[in-house]
Structures are given as C-alpha cells and as structure tokens.
Design a protein around this nucleic acid. Structure first.
Ligand SMILES: [Mn+2]
Ligand SMILES: [Mn+2]
Ligand SMILES: [Mn+2]
Ligand SMILES: [Mn+2]
Lengths: 138, 138
DNA sequence: ACAGAAGTTTAGCCTGTGCTACAATTTTGC
DNA sequence: GCAAAATTGTAGCACAGGCTAAACTTCTGT
C-alpha cells in the first residue's frame, strides 16, 4: 500500500511544492539582492518579482513570522540563519536545473524562464541525477 | 529592451503557468477517466486529486464557465471540443516529460511525481528538445 | 530647513483553492 | 417500493497572493 491511491500522490506532492515555492523564491531573491547591492529593500523585491510593493510587503511579513526573514519597520530585509540555509539550498538547486537545461542545448533566456518554475518540482533524487549529468557534460 | 526587467520575466511566466495548471490537470484527468471507465463522475475527480468533492465541484463549475468542461446537474462530466484539444496537448506534453525523466534513469514513481509538477513549466521550445532526446534514447 | 520624492505601511477589495457541515438527489439492495 | 448508501450540491469558513488608494515615514536636494 502506498497511500490513498497511486494517481493522487503526484498531485499532493505538487500542491505541497507550490505551498513552499514563494518562500523559496523570496529567500533566494533576498540573498541575491544583498549580494549585489549590500541591502535588500521592499522595492527591490517588488521589482524583482514584478508585483506591487504591497504584495511583497505582506509576503515578507509572513516569511518573517515563519522565521525565514528578519526586518524592522522601514528597515532593510535580512535573512535569518534558517532563511540563509534555505536560500543556499535553493540557489544550488536552481543553478543545477538551469545548467542542465543549458546542457541540453536550450538557449539562456528559455532556460532561465523554464528553470524558475521547474526547480520547485525536482525531487532530491532527480536533482542528484541532473547534477551528475551536468558535471559529465561540463 | 525585453520588458520590465530581466529578473522579473521568469516569475511572471511561472505565475501564468500556475494560473492555467488546474485547468490542464483537470481536463487531462477527465479524459483519462473517461478512457478508463466510460464516464467521469465528480467523485472520480475528487479521488484522483485527493481533494474534497466540494473543491472538485467548484473547479468543474469554473472550467465549465471557461468552456472546457460540460455537465448537467447530477450528470457525468464531459469535455467540450476545446477541452478535448487541451487535454490531448497536455497528455502529450506530460508523457514526453515523464519519458524523458525515465530516460535519465529516474525510477517510475519519482518520475511520475516530478513530471506532474514540471510539465506545466516546460516551454514549447524545451519540449521539442526533450521529445527529440527521448526519441534518440528510445 | 524643509518641500518634494521615495519608500513603507495599512485598509480594503478580489480570485482561486482548500476545508467541514449539511441538504438534496440519485442509485442500489432487499 | 422503500430504506440506506452513494453522489452531488450549497452555505460558509480559511488562507495565499494579486490589486488600488491613501496615509505615514524617511531620504534628498536646494
Ligand atoms: Mn522559482
Ligand atoms: Mn509549479
Ligand atoms: Mn498532468
Ligand atoms: Mn500536472
């Protein structure tokens, strides 16, 4: 017995992936912006994701409550240790997926777009395989 | 100039993919269930996706309003021509992604789970590449 | 210094998708 | 034929994440 049914398990996993996707993309973005411009402000995130600053603000508040981000009113946004660890993991996974697509001969822009969505649905097992194939083709 | 910024385009595309994902999975499921058991009932969809029948019901109503599904009260759920075309396209794309993962040496269960999420983020360009690689390895 | 620009917060709206509880209808078994 | 089971529908809740408008705070340039 594998659970409810065979058919439903992939969909339950996909829903779970989507539930954590925003957190993953935001900590990754905060880390990247801090690396590039020292500090990460709300406006940077709003531009980065092409959403209103209000939407970005609410998501930052949620992720702070979840212990991934840290910020004070009107201050820059920082990563907690937990957020930093998640950001590092996500950046690595993202890069592996991106470089794998490049290794297939996909152009950079298409690879960047596809990788942004695909990354959240790649299991650890599949990720190891992609990494191995990227290394071989490198 | 490619639009707002380079960074935001992948995220706008991913959000758009997610906006159409439910429709794609539902028409695909309806087609599959009809093939396997002649008719597709609400309970079949609820089990298939592991959601309550209420959730399935509301989604079916939305997709009917969007012209993808057709149903009468207490009757089985059918695909409109438009829904059938979308289902066929999604089934093909899904299979290509699944078979591609298998061709990398991923086990069937993992490939099935990962493919369910990945399929919606594979651009036509990438899909053609995957199809070509699957055909070569076949 | 201080006015205007920039950035941030808050209030309030919408849609989509998840749920439980309960009502109504249809099918099934005896 | 009729009670029970299965199926479908409805009411009403929650939460995430999208938006605009408006208020508030901070920064900047003269
Ligand atoms: Mn992403
Ligand atoms: Mn996705
Ligand atoms: Mn699918
Ligand atoms: Mn899917």
């Amino acid at each position: 017995m594998t659970g409810p049914t065979n058919k439903s398990e992939p969909h339950r996993r996909t829903r779970r992936d989507h539930a954590t996707e925003t957190a993953e993309d935001y900590v990754e973005a905060v880390a990247e912006i801090i690396t590039e411009r020292e500090v990460c402000r709300l406006v940077d995130l709003a531009k980065y994701f092409a959403v209103s600053h209000v939407t970005a603000n609410r998501i930052v508040a949620r992720l702070q409550k979840e212990g991934l981000l840290q910020t004070e009113p009107y201050q820059p946004i920082e990563l907690t240790p937990k957020g930093k660890r998640l950001a590092d993991r996500c950046r690595q996974r993202h890069e592996i997926v991106y470089r794998f697509l490049l290794s297939l001969g996909i152009d950079q822009k298409t690879a960047a777009i596809d990788a942004e969505g695909i990354e959240h649905h790649v299991s650890p097992k599949t990720l190891r395989k992609l990494e191995q194939l990227v290394d071989q083709s490198g």
